[in-house]
């Protein structure tokens, strides 16, 4: 159920609900920050905020790509492996080689686009469910990276200083990585909200059959969504390399779980058709902040994963309640028509 093609009044009521959904995350975030800061004021220091934002940047870029795929009622589990392959490719390219940052970004995104296109083609033309395809490419891409890298590791002192600067330097106080993530978020968010292409993705997620009958180029859009997700995972690989400087074949292992968690917590329904990239990015921010807050509050770090799991269950449970209420109110309102 989405706003696509529905008459104006329904659209606005749905908008309110969606906005409330994101408001929920913002509130959770505010409470978390307030409680943590009261117990330890250092939590709001410049360095701490900067670390949170930098870590969020990488997760948010991945979450934006994932949201685009999930909105079309698909899933991309290969993003962690694609991030690893891209990071290692870029690291190898720049190893003792002073190339411009923009080239690194393009190469990384290019690696991701190829992986994403492969996923998309297999899903669309191979007629294989996205869960199976991307589970497969999760293995394959990671295995390829291990074949290539073996046990070798690229260290920060082998990377050009310009590239490492990009990972740490700021522009008017804001790190480049964060600016890049915000740019990705805003462009994707606007395209999804206000452009035909974006609305078609929601339509496909709401009802694949109806979308096809309505003349939406489903094949092109499906592959396009996977290309976006892959490309952004590749981009995140470059950010990862610039931020940490040390890259081996295991880079990004298990990230897919955090990314899916961020998207689900951010209110993107796993069955497609609803949610927004803003929510996904907020989900990424919330998950990262929880990690930092646990450290500051001196709570056992081991609790983090359990909390992420509980949050996912809470989020889908809450979404279920909201969806049921919206459906009930739509039914009531539409009863005199049908």
């Amino acid at each position: 159920m989405t706003a696509v093609g529905l008459p104006a009044p329904r659209r606005s009521s749905l908008d309110v609900v969606l906005r409330a959904r994101e408001l929920g995350i913002v509130l959770a975030l505010a409470v978390l920050v307030a409680v943590t800061t009261i117990s330890n004021p250092r939590f709001l220091s410049g360095q701490s905020i900067r670390d949170i934002l930098l870590n969020t940047a990488i997760l948010a870029v991945l979450a934006v790509g994932q949201a685009v795929v999930v909105i079309t009622r698909n899933i991309d589990l290969s993003v962690g492996s694609v991030l690893g392959l891209s990071a290692f490719t870029v690291g190898t390219l720049l190893q003792n080689n002073n190339l411009p940052v923009i080239l690194a970004l393009l190469v990384g995104a290019g690696v991701g686009v190829v992986c994403g296109a492969l996923n998309g083609v297999l899903v669309r033309y191979g007629n294989v469910p996205a869960l199976v395809v991307t589970l497969g490419t999760l293995y394959v891409v990671r295995g390829v990276t291990y074949f290539w890298a073996g046990g070798s590791q690229i260290n920060a002192d082998e990377l050009p200083s310009g590239f490492l600067n990009f990972g740490n330097a700021t522009l008017i106080g804001i790190p480049y990585l964060v600016l890049l993530a915000v740019l990705v978020l805003v462009v994707t968010g606007v395209v999804l909200r206000s452009y035909r292409m974006g609305r078609e993705l929601y339509a496909m997620g709401s009802s694949p059959q109806a979308a096809r009958l309505a003349g939406i180029p489903v094949a092109r859009r499906t592959i396009g969504a996977f290309v976006v997700s892959g490309g952004l995972a590749g981009l995140a690989g470059v950010l990862f390399a610039a931020r940490f400087g040390t890259i081996d074949a295991a880079a990004g292992t298990g990230y897919e779980l955090n990314v899916v968690a961020a998207v689900v917590v951010g209110g993107v329904a796993v069955f497609g058709g609803s949610g927004s990239v803003w929510g996904a990015a907020l989900g990424a921010l919330l998950l990262t902040t929880i990690g930092s807050a646990l450290a500051v509050l001196e709570i056992n770090q081991f609790w983090q994963q359990a909390i992420v799991g509980a949050l996912i269950l809470l989020a889908i449970g809450a979404d279920r309640l909201v969806a049921a209420r919206v459906a009930a109110s739509l039914k009531k309102r539409g009863s005199h028509v049908s």
Binding site: L257, V270, A306, I312, L313, I316
Partner: peptide, 30 residues
């Protein structure tokens, strides 16, 4: 979660994947 609350099993079990593994670390640490 799947049958009584009617939530999608993919999302539920990704959630409990993280939850149960996290609890394992809480119980035994590293």
């Amino acid at each position: 979660f799947v049958t009584v609350l009617g939530l999608p099993s993919l999302a539920v079990t990704i959630g409990t994947l993280a939850l149960y593994r996290g609890l394992a670390f809480v119980v035994l640490g590293d």
